[in-house]
Amino acid sequence: MSKRPEHQAPPEFFYNEDEARKYTQNSRIIDIQAQMTERCMELLLLPDDTSCLLLDIGCGSGLSGTVLEEWGHMWIGLDISPSMLDVALERETEGDLVLADMGEGVPFKAGSFDGAVSVSALQWLFNADKKSHQPVKRLYKFFSSLYASLSRSARAVFQFYPENESQLDLVTSQAMKAGFYGGVVVDFPNSAKAKKFFLVLMTGGAAPLPQALGTEESDNSLQIKYAKREACKAARGKPLKNTRAWLLDKKERRRKQGKETKPDTKYTGRKRSGRF
């Protein structure tokens, strides 16, 4: 693997016009970002069948936002890279966009959002890209202003790429200091490829952390619990992604929202033949 993006240049330079386009057109990236956003949405535990107002932190070109739309929510996105936001405009995402640096604080008034998600962005805050940048201070400013901008009982879920244990400690300690409860959920901890970190932050009372995916063993080192993806999905009564059942489910959701949806046929969810 090449060097981490956040070690190469500040985000607003790394995600330039070229990178923004490449990023958004890469089908592997599109897929992964969508999957991780789906998982964030599960962990966000929003009330069923209600459209909410969500904040997407580091929304980029709107790959994560697309999933929020599919779930029937309205979103406001915040990002530091003008080029990424330009691509979001081109893609005509439904979300509204704001150019801002999360490390300077979340510029919204108290109680604005029913929840917040952030996919693959938080690790950028561990870096000091300017002389004046102090990661601890920026993290604290970010979390405390985010806490204020959420409505009571709302959650914020971050998929991110910590580099080491001390970054995990840093991020959780600053979030707790800002008033949040919660911690880190690690899905598939035993798989180098599938392992994913989710910071789950809660505003109202200490609820138990959700179950992680990918193992039956429980491990309390970070108050983290693991479960099999299949078992977990089945328990929630939600079909596994990309199966026919999942597709039918999703189409039903779109219909309920009054969106144009192709009728269900025997071909729905079938593998396409390789000829196309």
């Binding site: 509204d96 300077e104 979340v106 510029p107 919204f108 604005s112 901008s149």
Partner: peptide
């Protein structure tokens, strides 16, 4: 959008 304006501040 005006929904965004209704939430947006310069408190930072």
């Amino acid at each position: 959008k005006l929904i965004t304006h209704n939430m947006l501040t310069s408190k930072c």
